[in-house]
């Protein structure tokens, strides 16, 4: 991208300078050119030169293209991340050949320096996926699968907002993209394959008892719901409620009690009728699911 920008800027500046120079020369000159000489100038400078420039630019653009189209390359990327937009959160599924998929939500981790192919879907309305620091945006359209290929060049956490108005809480729908060193990333992904060490105990029992498992899944428990975000490793995520709150026990408890206040129009019903102690116990347990 940067090279293309500099090539375009410098080339454009050179041509512009040349045109201005010719213009100044024409203004200062007293005698007129003959008609055939003028026609020759128009032919060479007005038709042949632009045609050659444009053909060169087109060639250059086509030469740049293949790296943007990894599907055409031999050796497709080994990591595919499927992101599904829902009102108002993101389901994230990591797919690698030979291993079972890893389901997560609202946070995308990717290895630095490796090309990652995103499959973008939507379950309800049109959303749009965009990590401005890594590349262009791509719509998520119900009934379609859009592909996007991204490569992070340095480690860091980048914000990704939903960029297509999708309802009341559109502005409260975001995610973080965490680019990690490849070795660190593999280690993290391997950890996601196994249930969190804290997936048992009182919190787990209350979570099941109050029916949270009808919508949420937590690996290693009876909870297998598919409506809401997978919470198997919620404690290790940086944010809560799809990129809108810091992930703290208090915020988890608040979200359980009054999700519609934090996020108007959210699908999750409020559970403020639960005993406060139960909410605290569930929040503390969820925070511990690393």
């Amino acid at each position: 991208m940067a090279t293309l920008f500099w090539v375009m800027t410098c080339g454009g500046a050179l041509i512009w300078a040349g045109t201005v120079a010719v213009l100044l020369y024409a203004v200062r000159r007293r005698t007129l050119y003959s008609e055939p000489a003028a026609s020759r100038l128009i032919f060479w400078a007005g038709a042949v030169f632009p045609a050659i420039t444009l053909i060169l630019l087109l060639g250059y653009a086509l030469w740049l293209m293949p790296s943007l189209r990894p599907l055409a390359q031999p050796g497709a990327p080994t990591l595919r991340i499927e992101v599904t937009g829902r009102q108002y959160w993101w389901r994230v599924i990591y797919r690698q050949p030979g291993t079972p998929p890893v389901v997560s939500a609202n946070e995308i981790r990717l290895p630095v320096g490796e090309r990652v192919e995103f499959t973008l879907k939507s379950d309800d309305v049109i959303h749009s996926f965009w990590i401005p620091a890594l590349g262009g945006k791509m719509d998520m359209i119900p009934g379609r699968e859009n592909r996007l290929s991204l490569r992070a060049t340095k480690p860091g956490t980048f914000r990704g907002p939903c960029t297509e108005f999708c309802g009341t809480s559109h502005a409260l729908m975001a995610f973080s993209a965490v680019a990690m060193e490849p070795a660190e990333f593999r280690q993290w992904l391997a950890g996601q394959h196994v249930p969190s060490a804290g997936a048992t105990g009182t919190g787990a029992r209350l979570f099941i008892r109050h029916g949270c498992g009808a919508c949420h899944a937590v690996a290693g428990t009876e909870a297998t719901g598919m409506l809401g975000p997978d919470l198997s490793h919620l404690g290790s995520r940086e944010t809560l409620g799809a990129g809108i709150l810091p992930n703290s026990q208090d915020n988890i408890a608040r979200f359980i009690a009054e999700p519609d206040v934090i996020k108007p129009g959210v699908q999750m019903p409020g559970f403020d009728m639960l005993p406060p102690d139960d909410i605290e116990a569930i929040a503390s347990w969820l925070k511990g699911l690393k």
């Binding site: 029916g211 919508c215 909870a223 409506l227």
Partner: peptide, 15 residues
Amino acid sequence: RIGIPAAKVPACLGC
């Protein structure tokens, strides 16, 4: 057992 995710119906047996 599994609800109807497309219609946002949760699994009855969850509760």
